[in-house]
Amino acid sequence: MVGANVSEARLVDIESIEGVPPKFKIGKYALSVRRFDRAPGGGRIHAVDFAQMPAPSPIRSTFGGTRIPS
Rank of each mutant, 00 (worst) to 15 (best):
P69G: 04
P56S: 03
F36G: 01
I14D: 01
Q52T: 06
S70C: 06
G41T: 10
D37G: 05
Y29G: 05
T62Q: 05
V6M: 11
G65V: 05
P54S: 05
P22F: 02
I14N: 01
V48D: 04
P54L: 11
F36V: 01
G65W: 08
P22K: 13
A51L: 13
G42E: 00
I26R: 14
A30N: 04
R67I: 08
S16N: 08
G27C: 10
P56Q: 02
H46F: 14
V6Q: 08
P22D: 15
T62L: 10
T62F: 06
V33G: 02
E15A: 15
G43W: 00
H46V: 11
P21K: 13
I59E: 14
R67F: 06
V33H: 01
I14H: 02
D37R: 03
S32K: 12
I45A: 03
D13M: 05
F36C: 02
D37H: 10
V6A: 14
P58V: 04
V12W: 00
F63N: 02
G3C: 08
G19E: 09
S7L: 13
D13W: 03
D49L: 12
R10N: 09
P58Y: 00
I17V: 15
K25M: 15
V2L: 09
V33E: 02
I45W: 05
P21Y: 05
K28S: 10
G42C: 03
